[in-house]
Design a protein around this nucleic acid. Structure first.
Lengths: 91, 91
DNA sequence: TTTATATTTAGACAAATATCTAAATAAGCT
DNA sequence: AGCTTATTTAGATATTTGTCTAAATATAAA
């Protein structure tokens, strides 16, 4: 949970997730989409991977990153716990 | 959105939110629930307020903090955008 | 085997963050 | 007015974070 919120607490990393929403991308392609150095993007990808928000897969020289959507359920669940806290109505 | 994720990126602040789930609390009551100084908790409450996750209301000497649940919809909405990214089925 | 390409690792550094103590502010009480 | 209680503000400090350049690693191609 800690790694998850940590990973989400950066606009570049959130933008990377939004980019991956359109499909998997190689590290190089992701780096080209931003005005940061490749090592910087590599570091961001590492944090996203630590949070399990993305998976990586090496094919030859290329490393492809893919969005892992299952984790979002965890956060949504955490959020939901607040939504209904003082709401006693039944729909 | 930035202030929101920033506020959520700290275990103490998330614990404060969970505490407020059971109802409003004064700054002092919240501080007592943690092993940090009052100024530290005051600062955390400030960040939560900046993110609009809580509201504060001064009654005499006491400041009561209340969970603001409407903001959670914003995050849940952001999350949902990922859940359905590669899901083309219509329910 | 040398060269080129893709990516990560290492190390440095400035900026942001979480925490503390001391002091300031504000309200209530005697 | 003076004292007490509740909370915030100010300033200091150690840690974490985001970024960079240079170097290392790994794969492919010639």
């Amino acid at each position: 949970m800690n790694a998850l919120f940590k990973a989400l607490n950066d606009p570049t990393r959130r933008a990377i997730l939004e980019l991956l929403r359109d499909g998997p991308r190689t590290a190089g392609d992701i780096a080209e989409a931003f005005h940061f150095s490749k090592p910087t993007i590599s570091h961001h990808l590492d944090l996203l991977r630590q949070a399990d928000l993305v998976t990586s897969d090496k094919q030859g020289q290329f490393v492809t990153y893919t969005l892992n959507m299952t984790v979002f359920d965890e956060i949504i669940g955490w959020m939901m716990q607040f939504k209904n806290s003082s709401d006693t109505t039944t729909t």
